[in-house]
């Protein structure tokens, strides 16, 4: 067992950060896939009368989803780093 690992894993903020990161990555991937499905016609438009909203929804997957995924991965990496630094210090 790595010294101090159990104590480091009890860091609630690291867990919160990792969970946030996973949720952000999953959201980004889902939004991207949804946008692709809307564009290719595999999914129906949620509101056909509001064409502006539909455009925004389609483009969200291509312009906002990379931010979701990128920041989510960053959160996971930072959570692992927080635990790793704690282990090394003990």
């Amino acid at each position: 067992m790595i010294r101090g690992l159990r104590a480091a894993l009890r860091n609630p903020f690291a867990w919160l950060l990792a969970l946030t990161g996973v949720v952000l990555v999953a959201t980004g991937v889902w939004k991207f896939r949804y946008s692709v499905a809307l564009q290719t016609g595999r999914e129906r438009y949620p509101d056909i009368d509001d064409i502006g909203y539909t455009y925004a929804l389609i483009n969200e997957g291509f312009r906002l989803a990379p931010w979701y995924v990128g920041v989510g991965l960053l959160c996971v990496v930072c959570a692992v780093a927080a635990v790793a630094l704690r282990v090394r210090r003990r």
């Binding site: 860091n11 979701y68 920041v71 959160c75 704690r86």
Partner: peptide, 17 residues
Amino acid sequence: GLVIAAAGLVVLAMRWR
């Protein structure tokens, strides 16, 4: 905004105990 909010969480995680 996402990065800034994540930075707050990073600070909390780094300063934990």
